[in-house]
Computed example of a mutant assay.
Amino acid sequence: MSSDRAAQENEALLIREAMAAASEGAPPLPDLVPVALAQGRRRRARARVAIGAGVTGVLALAVFGATLPSWGAGSGTGQVGAAPGTPDSSAMPTPVPTGPSRAPVHVEPTPGESSMASLPAAERRRQEQFQQQTAALLDTLLPAGFGTVRPVDLAVSRYQGGSAGRVFPVVFSVRPTGDSADAPDEAPCKNNPTKKSQCKEAELPGGIVARAITAAGNSKGDKTITGVNVRFVYGDSIVVLSADGDDSSMVSAPVTADQLLGVAGDSRFLELVRYADSFPMEPKQESVRGG
């Protein structure tokens, strides 16, 4: 047994000497312990970053969801955002061909005021498409004196006519009424010579009672400009269509009460109203005040 053990030890010694000779001149093997520790630290750091990013993302979504206004589709109940998501654009009426896109008029929001630029992308596209269709229809229905009607990028209800260097602001608003149980009753429709206003009621298709008020606006020297405002209730919304004069040139809105009532009673205009009532784009109106 002793001779066998001696032979094994001699063999092991020869193997070690051969390995030493073969590795002579080669660079030393790296110390794997620090590398492993460093890799472990990097993996833990990446894990912490990933977990932190996930938590931050959840918090950001929570904050964004809490502060996001209720834009988007309604369900015909007058509640903005009552139905999830944005309605399919195919549901939007096309009362007239819009033709080439009309470049929106840019109006910078005042401090604390929001604009369409702050809307979610899908909702902004929906409102912009609605504005394009509305502007094209108003071009068709309003008197030629308004010139080309363009959307204003501040709000979906804002438009602007332009002719001969004059600017005529136009508003087309379809606002959900919300809870108006405590709202005051509509004041009687009557003229007010002191305020230089005239009130006229008319029945639109479907038995809708609309009220048109022609009133003096800004005064400068001996000049006074007038504008026309038409308002009526449709479904769960208050609809307002108004046209004002040009302040800089002191030129009144080139439209009469009868003409604006004709616009409001057009079946194509009421189709736009129907869509906006079913899929609200404006926040609720807390109260309905007399005109």
Rank of each mutant, 00 (worst) to 15 (best):
1 M>F: 09
1 M>I: 12
3 S>E: 08
4 D>I: 14
7 A>F: 04
7 A>S: 14
10 N>Q: 13
21 A>P: 02
22 A>E: 15
23 S>G: 05
25 G>Q: 13
27 P>D: 09
31 D>L: 12
31 D>W: 07
31 D>C: 10
33 V>F: 10
34 P>N: 11
39 Q>L: 13
43 R>E: 11
46 R>V: 03
48 R>H: 13
48 R>L: 07
50 A>Y: 00
51 I>G: 03
51 I>C: 09
55 V>T: 06
58 V>Y: 09
58 V>F: 09
59 L>E: 10
60 A>H: 03
62 A>F: 06
65 G>C: 07
66 A>G: 13
66 A>R: 10
67 T>I: 13
69 P>C: 08
71 W>F: 06
72 G>W: 08
73 A>C: 08
74 G>E: 07
78 G>N: 02
79 Q>C: 05
81 G>K: 06
81 G>T: 02
84 P>A: 08
85 G>H: 05
89 S>F: 15
94 T>S: 15
94 T>I: 11
95 P>Y: 06
97 P>D: 13
98 T>Y: 06
99 G>W: 06
103 A>V: 11
108 E>T: 11
109 P>C: 12
109 P>I: 13
109 P>K: 11
110 T>M: 12
113 E>P: 08
114 S>K: 05
117 A>Y: 02
120 P>T: 10
123 E>C: 09
124 R>A: 01
125 R>I: 05
125 R>Y: 09
128 E>C: 03
130 F>H: 03
130 F>L: 04
133 Q>P: 00
133 Q>W: 04
134 T>W: 00
135 A>G: 01
137 L>T: 01
140 T>K: 14
149 V>S: 04
149 V>H: 06
154 L>A: 11
157 S>G: 04
158 R>E: 08
159 Y>K: 02
161 G>F: 00
161 G>N: 00
166 R>H: 10
167 V>E: 10
167 V>L: 09
167 V>K: 11
167 V>P: 03
171 V>H: 11
177 T>V: 15
178 G>N: 14
180 S>A: 09
185 D>N: 02
186 E>F: 00
188 P>G: 05
192 N>W: 02
194 T>W: 05
199 C>E: 07
202 A>M: 10
202 A>C: 08
204 L>K: 04
204 L>T: 06
206 G>W: 01
208 I>N: 09
208 I>E: 04
210 A>T: 00
212 A>V: 00
215 A>F: 00
216 A>F: 02
221 G>C: 07
223 K>R: 15
225 I>G: 05
226 T>W: 05
233 V>P: 01
234 Y>S: 07
238 I>P: 00
243 A>H: 13
249 S>L: 12
251 V>H: 15
252 S>M: 11
252 S>E: 11
256 T>Q: 14
257 A>S: 15
258 D>Q: 07
265 G>Y: 01
265 G>P: 04
266 D>A: 04
270 L>R: 02
272 L>V: 00
274 R>Q: 03
274 R>K: 15
277 D>H: 12
277 D>L: 05
277 D>W: 04
278 S>C: 03
279 F>L: 01
282 E>I: 01
285 Q>C: 04
287 S>I: 07
290 G>I: 02
